[in-house]
Design a protein around this nucleic acid. Sequence first.
DNA 1: CTGTTAGCGCGTTCAA
DNA 2: TTGAACGCGCTAACAG
Lengths: 332, 332
Amino acid sequence: MNDALKPSPEPTLSDVAELAGVSRAIASRALSAQPRPVSADKRERVLRAAEALGFRPNLLARGLSSKTVNLVAILVNHIHDLSDLDLFDLLLAEIQAIGKQVIFIRVGAGEHAEAFLRDGVAYHVDAALVFSDFADATTVRRMFRNNAVLMLNGHHDPGAPSVTMDEDHGIREAVADAAAKGVRSALLLTGRTMSLVEQARIASYRAALERHGIKLLGELAGDYSYASGRVLAQLIDVDATDAVFCTSDAMAMGVLDAHRQHFPQHQPKRFRLYGFDNISLTQFDAYPISSIGADKREYVAQIVRILNQPADLAQNSDHVLVATRFVPRLTG
Amino acid sequence: MNDALKPSPEPTLSDVAELAGVSRAIASRALSAQPRPVSADKRERVLRAAEALGFRPNLLARGLSSKTVNLVAILVNHIHDLSDLDLFDLLLAEIQAIGKQVIFIRVGAGEHAEAFLRDGVAYHVDAALVFSDFADATTVRRMFRNNAVLMLNGHHDPGAPSVTMDEDHGIREAVADAAAKGVRSALLLTGRTMSLVEQARIASYRAALERHGIKLLGELAGDYSYASGRVLAQLIDVDATDAVFCTSDAMAMGVLDAHRQHFPQHQPKRFRLYGFDNISLTQFDAYPISSIGADKREYVAQIVRILNQPADLAQNSDHVLVATRFVPRLTG
DNA sequence: CTGTTAGCGCGTTCAA
DNA sequence: TTGAACGCGCTAACAG
C-alpha cells in the first residue's frame, strides 16, 4: 500500500489543533476536563475540530505525563468459583462508573504471580485490587507501585488499606441459630487451609461452636468445590451429626446432593446444613442452603470509595470491615 | 514531605543504562524480548543493573513508540450468566499465556458502549474481542482501531474476522435424538430475541423440528435466566408436550425445578427437557439437564490463534466456526 | 556492535 | 489568554 494513501488512522491532538487553527496547547486545554484558560471562541473551534476528526485522546500517552491512567488491575487466582459471578459483574460496573477501566489478571493457583506480570502493563496501573492470596502484602506492594495496593484477600498490612468481610459476625449468627435449634454436635468442611481467610473462618467456627457448647466432631479439608463436598459427604456420620458447616456454598451443594434423602421437603431434616458466601444459586429450589454472606453492594461500595480517593492509597491505611449476616433457608 | 527525600519510586531505563555504564539504546536492546544486537558483555551488565534496581519497563511508554501495548479488550454485556464462568477463566488464562493482558469492559444491557469507552484506554488496545451484541461490526470497528476487532457475538462482517459457534450442528443432533425417542411435539423457550445469535438459534430449532416432523407448539420468550424459565414453565401443558427445548441451561433449570414431580429418577419422565450451553452446573446431580455445547477449549484456541497473528487482524477475515455437540443427560 | 538523535501523543511549565 | 519548548519512558532510525 502506498504510504501517501494511508490516512493516519488515529487523529492526534496535533491534527485537531491544526484543523482548529490553534496551537497544541490550546487544543489540550480546550479538551481538558478541568477548567483551563481558553477563550470561548477557540474552545468552540477545537471542540468542533475534535468532533469532526473523531478525535479520541490516547490515554496511554496522557498517562505518561500525567502519571495517572485511570486503569485498575484486579488480581485473582481464577474466576471459576460460583461466588465470583455475583461479585465481579457488580465490581466491574461500579469501577467503570467512576471512569476507570479494569485489567483483569488471573494469577492461577500455584504459579507465581510475578511470572504473569513480567513485562506487563499492570505494573503501572493506578491501583491494584488484590483478591488473590498468592502473596503477602509486602510482596504485592513491591510488585506494584508502593502506594497503589488495596488488599481484599484477608491479608492485613500496615502499609496498604484493606476491605475485609467480617465473617466472624455471620458465623456467630449461624452457629447461634443452630444452637437455638438444638444442635449439639457439628462437622466442619473447609476449603484450602493455606489461605489466611480460610484460617480465620475456621477459627471463628471453632470459637463459636465452643461458646455454645456444640461438640466439633471433626474438620474435613476440601477445596471449596462441589466435587469435594460430594466426596467428603461420604464421611458424614448422619446419626451422630446434628449439623454440617461448610466454608463454601458449592461444597454444601455437594453435601446436599449426596444426602438428598435426608432433606425431605416437609419433614424435619436428618442434619442441618450451612454453606458460605450466600451465592445467588442458593436461591434456586434445588439448593435451598442456609448460608452466610455480606451485602455485596456495600462491599463493592467500600472498595470503590477507597479507589476514588484522589490521594495516594497509602495515605489511607483503613482496614474496613464489611459485616456478614446469617441467611436462613430450608437446610438450616 | 520534602521532595529531595522522596526517592524516585520507579527506576527508568535511563537509570539502568547509567548504572550499567551504557547508553539507553543498549539498555533497551538488552532488555528487549526480541533478539537485538548487543555484546554479551554489556547485555550482562544491563541485566544485572536492571535486577539491582528492580527495573520494570513501563509498557505504556513502550507502546507509545512501538505501537503495540500487548493489551486486549474484552467487551461483554455483563458477566452474570452461568456460562460466562466456564468461558472467561479459560480465555483469560490463554490470552495471558501469549503475553497479553486483558481489559474487561462491561457494556451493560441497554446502554451505549461508547459512553463507557469515552476517554478510556480501550480505544488504543491491540485488539478488541466483542462478545457484546450492542452494535454491529461497523460501529465496533469505528470505535476501535479499524483493524483490531474480533467478532464473537455472532455478527458477521466482511471487514472483521469472527469466531462463531456452529450451534446449528448441536441443535440438529439434539432434535434428532428427541425424534428418535418418539418426541412428536415440542415447546421452545427463547432468550432475548433481539440478539442475532438467538435468532439464528431459533431458526435452527424450527428447521430441525420441521425436518423431523415434530410439531412446534409454541415459542415462549424469556431472558436466559433461571427466573424466566421458572415463570414460563407454568405455561407448559405437560400432557400435550413431549419435549421442551430451552436456549439456555439456566432456563432449563428453572423449568426442571418447576416440574420436579415429572422427572422421577428411575421412571420415564413426563416430558423431555433440553438446555443450551452445557454449563458445568449441568453436571451437578440436581440439574442433570441434556444440553448442547461446544468444546470451550477449541473455541478459545481459535480466538487466541487469531489474536496471536502478528499481522493486522484485518488481513485475516476468517469466519471460523466451532462445532457444537449434543450432550445427553437424564432429562433428554 | 554501538551511541546519538528523533520521535510516539500528550500535559505543563514559562515567557510573552 | 497564548504558544514555544520541554519532559514523561521508551523504541527506531541512522550514523559511526
